[in-house]
Design a protein around this nucleic acid. Structure first.
Ligand code: FES
Ligand code: FES
Lengths: 144, 144
DNA sequence: TACAAATAGGATAAATTTATCCGAAATAAA
DNA sequence: TTTATTTCGGATAAATTTATCCTATTTGTA
């Protein structure tokens, strides 16, 4: 469904959001450990998210990653997915036709569109705040 | 969403079903041309589908691929997807946790499960007959 | 039987995704 | 100012997916 990079990106964002809520900036090392991801690969993804202004990165000693408290609530899952995997999952044809169009539908267009739209709505209606709070209260988990 | 191999596999199955309905056996060459896929790669996928008893292959002169007419209606999209991509899309965690479990949910578990179930239902309630008929009547397309 | 047509299957290559390594640059603290 | 810490970014490697090539095998027909 999502690429490995995107999975790591989502989990990292949630972990950063969770810590930013408590005023804590977290390091790459921490993040990779908490979400059980390869450190160097995760660094690339975090850079990407920073470039997309989804997270902030701070260089140097005592640096790390954080998200403005006031933004946590407005960052949707869809922005993260879009930044890393692009919009193919929102717009692309389920059977790989060049473009998904009503006027030239593939055999599963009607059925696929429903699922794709549901996924889109889900990603657009879920924000980092909700997800971070569940981590905090211990009802959801980032690894294993 | 699906792998390239799976996309080709679905499209090939539909094309074979459509022709089998009219009593025509189709060659690899034909299939690859009609679904706009690389021939040799498509051959591997068809072998795979044949091994899974989803399609029949006939070697030698005048050979090719076909599906028993009586089976077309009962072959669900889910069987094809499962044969090629496995069951990860049905059962796997959206964020890549080892297993998706209610007792140890990832942050998007509740939301993701809904979408995943919808996809599962869609694939399990769509059969080759429906899809082949739409190709035949020209309302859906296998390429471009 | 000989030949042509077609799939089977192994080996290999190309492309993409995932992952690692290392030096440069930035920054806070001593 | 020096040092330790930490992200940035380029190069490279490993793994996986996608694609190609070539030979063997099967089978219908002349
Ligand atoms: S054309 Fe394939 S999903 Fe719309
Ligand atoms: S645990 Fe992640 S989807 Fe169920």
């Amino acid at each position: 469904m999502f690429s490995k990079a995107c999975e790591y990106g989502i989990k990292a964002s949630i972990y950063i959001a969770y810590n930013s809520y408590e005023g804590k900036r977290v390091s790459l090392k921490d993040i990779a450990k908490e979400i059980d991801s390869p450190e160097a690969f995760t660094a690339k993804i975090l850079q990407d998210l920073a470039r997309h202004n989804i997270i902030n990165s701070v260089k140097g000693a005592y640096g790390g990653f954080e998200i403005d408290k006031k933004d946590i609530q407005s960052i949707k899952l869809s922005e993260i997915v879009n930044a890393i995997d692009g919009d193919k999952i929102y717009k692309g044809c389920g059977l790989g036709l060049h473009t998904c169009e009503e006027e030239h539908p593939c055999p599963v267009h009607d059925q696929f569109k429903i699922v794709r739209t549901e996924l889109k709505n889900m990603l657009e209606s879920t924000n980092l705040e909700q997800l971070a709070l569940d981590i905090k209260s211990g009802v959801t988990f980032l690894k294993i």
